[in-house]
């Protein structure tokens, strides 16, 4: 079961977890990303490419389900305006055993960072700037090349 959600609403982990803990799963692995208050960031804005974003996330989830024989894969990504401490992304997967669940969860968040069309803009005081991509993210995504 694949679930992909991109919207401006706060991420409700309890609801997402309940959907992931489906029959037959012996293992659930999740990742939550929160907005950091790096160097005085007061606000984070997330822009995305509607339609293409959801398609990219569904493709990633389908890849993970096939590669690790998952029972469920959920990706929830918030867009719009967020504050430090708020959840920006949630990834959750279930599988019969822990190794598959843990690996698939890491795969999804690593590849989401390079494959899905989102853009972050940080505001510090009155200074807003677009976040530059990090080489470490490319390296993290590349280790999943099959």
């Amino acid at each position: 079961m694949i679930r992909v959600l991109v919207n401006a609403e706060p991420i409700d982990i309890a609801t997402e977890m309940a959907a992931i803990e489906t029959g037959g799963a012996g293992a659930v692995a999740t990742f939550s990303g929160l907005v950091r208050a790096d160097d005085g960031v007061g606000m984070l804005e997330l822009e995305h490419y509607p339609g293409a974003t959801e398609a990219a996330l569904v493709t990633l989830a389908e890849t993970a389900v096939a590669r690790w024989s998952l029972l469920a894969a959920t990706i929830v990504h918030r867009v719009g305006v967020m504050r430090p401490g708020e959840r920006i992304v949630f990834v959750g997967v279930s599988a019969p055993h822990r190794a598959a669940a843990l690996e698939a969860c890491a795969f999804l968040i690593d590849r989401l960072k390079t494959d899905a069309p989102f853009w972050k803009r940080e505001t510090r005081g009155s200074d807003a700037r677009w976040v530059e991509p990090r080489g470490s993210d490319d390296a993290a995504a590349a280790r999943w090349q099959a």
Partner: peptide, 10 residues
């Protein structure tokens, strides 16, 4: 056709 910077989600 969409034109954009390198992505920075997650």
């Amino acid at each position: 056709v969409a034109i954009f910077p390198p992505v920075t989600g997650g």
